[in-house]
Amino acid sequence: MYAQEVKSTGKGVKAPEEMSVQERAFQARIDAGEKIEPKDWMPDGYRKNLVRQISQHGHSEVVGQLPEGNWITRAPTLERKAILLAKVQDEAGHGLYLYSAAETLGVSRADLIDDLLSGKAKYSSIFNYPTLNWADMGAVGWLVDGAAIVNQVALQRTSYGPYSRAMVRICKEESFHARQGFDIMMKMSSGTAAQKAMAQDALNRLWWPALMMFGPPDAESVHSAQSMAWKIKVMTNDEGRQKFVDQTIPQIEYLGLEVPDSAAKLNRETGHYSYSDPDWAEFFAVLKGNGPCNVDRLRARNIAHIEGAWFRDGLMAHAQKQQLAAE
């Protein structure tokens, strides 16, 4: 999802008899559905996992401004431009909430940002794909935000209080994002032949990367078990992916577009759609930095940061002067 490569403690889930008294009490609170708050005791592994997951999530929101920002200056009407701007502004706001949630765990936003800029921290692979035609603004809202919602709705139940509360706020805005994306897709797929071609092209390109957002298959997801036990993660990768496929394929049909997967088929007994495996080699290549836009995305963030240094320093210098004058 927005945090696809969260390395956990690397060890399996501890059995109750291996746990200290504190750890056992902690696990009992989680099992009882209680929320953990910033000042509560927590195992180091829990804290580390959460910092990684929340910061990856935050970085995804921040980098996620770029693929949509790519079309703001070319939005075709004043209304579309306003809606897209408002949406991208929301993403920046989500970045802020999430960084704030991470800060409650004792890390600083400045350090988190340094890790993003140096390439040490990850963000969702989806934002390393380009947005090539206007229908991508529809497909990103519909598919990418749609996939994010599946995950984020589940994360409202996550065990860490500040993260869970951030998700409640974020989900409200995300559903508006997905709706505006679908609205663009409706306009495009019922428009001129060229518009319909744009819609199909956007769907073809973004379908597989959207499926990859949920992370590798459960069988290969080595870091999930502990996160699930701690309820940092509340749904497995495959569960989320299936849910997304099930809700999205009927929407593709409604739009009159072609599902980019010839194997996708409704199983009437289970009520679920079958689907082909995405190209996991591509997924891992993108995570390693070899997606079509990894270099450009990080470069854009680095330039913004470096060229904005004088601005941040200037404001600090002014604040210091004011403080000195007051003393």
Partner: peptide, 8 residues
């Protein structure tokens, strides 16, 4: 959009 010196 997306290129300012700070998120705020």
């Amino acid at each position: 959009c997306g290129h300012a010196p700070v998120l705020e």
